[in-house]
């Protein structure tokens, strides 16, 4: 059984509602306060990327169970320009927006699993998972 929800990121308020949804879900699953902070921060970073670079996209939240443990999968999907330099965006300090450049590599460190698929012109799909310890 899986619980799914998705939040449209079209305005800045989408960022807030996405992370609120993540906080509720992770709290309900019994994640520790530190893991809750990790998950909401990751959602915030992903949602902000959508807002900053593509204006339109969806953050999806899903509860998974691999038979041994429960987890939460966050997906960030957009139809934006895509990322040309995948390798660069995973380097600390790389930023085209004037931010801290901690976004994607930061998300990767906060979560347990991280996958990014992107082709120029076809949008981006990021999937990242946190397991309940």
């Amino acid at each position: 059984m899986t619980t799914q929800s998705s939040v449209e990121i079209g305005t800045e308020w989408g960022i807030v509602s996405a992370r609120q949804a993540g906080r509720e879900l992770s709290k309900g699953l019994g994640f520790s306060s530190v893991d809750q902070a990790r998950i909401t921060t990751a959602i915030s970073e992903l949602a902000r990327n959508i807002y900053l670079y593509t204006k339109n996209g969806v953050i999806g939240l899903e509860v998974v169970n691999d038979g041994h443990r429960q987890g939460i999968i966050i997906t960030a999907r957009d139809q934006g320009p895509g990322i040309e330099n995948l390798r660069d965006v995973m380097v600390d300090g790389y930023s085209t927006s004037g931010g801290l450049g901690a976004g994607l590599p930061g998300v990767k460190r906060l979560m347990d699993e991280f996958d990014i698929q992107s082709n120029p012109g076809e949008g981006t799909l990021i999937t990242t998972t946190k397991w309940l310890r």
């Binding site: 306060s33 530190v34 990790r38 600390d92 460190r109």
Partner: peptide, 14 residues
């Protein structure tokens, strides 16, 4: 600054 927030910031590399 809450411990959970501090840990998250440090892990993010901020």
């Amino acid at each position: 600054i809450q411990p959970a927030v501090a840990i998250t910031l440090v892990e993010m590399g901020v």
